[in-house]
Amino acid sequence: MSVAAPRPTADDLLPSPVPVRFVAEDGTAVEPPAGYPMPAGEELVEAYRRMVLGRRFDGQATALTRQGRLAVYPSSRGQEACQIAGVLALREDDWLFPTYRDTVALIARGIDPVEALTLLRGGWHCGYDPAATHVAPQCTPLATQTVHAVGMADALRRKGEDGVVMAFVGDGGTSEGDFHEALNYAAVLHAPVVFFVQNNKYAISVPLAKQTAAPALAYKGIGYGIRSEQVDGNDLVAVLSVLTAAVEHARTGHGPFLVEAHTYRMDAHTNADDATRYREADEVERWEAADPLARLETHLRDRGLLGTEDIASAHKAAEEFAARVRDEMNTDPETDPFELFDHVFAEPTPQLREQRALLASELTAPEDGQ
Rank of each mutant, 00 (worst) to 15 (best):
A203V: 04
I204K: 08
S205Q: 10
S205W: 10
V206G: 00
V206Q: 11
P207R: 02
A209E: 15
Q211D: 05
T212N: 10
T212A: 11
A214E: 14
A216I: 06
L217R: 09
A218F: 05
A218K: 12
Y219N: 14
I222C: 05
I222H: 07
G223L: 05
Y224S: 03
G225K: 11
R227G: 03
R227E: 02
S228F: 09
S228H: 06
E229H: 08
E229A: 15
Q230M: 15
Q230A: 06
Q230W: 09
N234T: 06
L236P: 00
V237Q: 01
V237K: 01
A238C: 03
V239I: 09
T244V: 01
A245T: 14
V247Q: 10
H249Y: 14
A250C: 11
A250E: 10
H254N: 15
G255Q: 06
P256N: 11
P256F: 05
E260G: 08
H262Q: 11
H262F: 02
T263F: 06
R265D: 06
R265Q: 05
D267V: 06
A268K: 05
H269Q: 03
A272D: 12
A272M: 14
D274I: 05
A275D: 15
A275N: 13
A275S: 15
A275P: 10
Y278R: 10
Y278T: 11
R279D: 03
A281E: 15
A281C: 05
D282W: 14
D282K: 12
W287N: 08
W287K: 07
L293E: 03
L293Y: 09
L293R: 06
A294H: 07
A294D: 13
A294P: 00
R295W: 00
L296M: 00
E297H: 07
T298L: 13
T298D: 06
T298W: 00
H299C: 08
R301Q: 09
D302Q: 12
D302F: 00
G304P: 00
G304Y: 01
L305K: 01
L306D: 02
G307V: 07
T308L: 11
T308H: 13
D310E: 06
I311W: 08
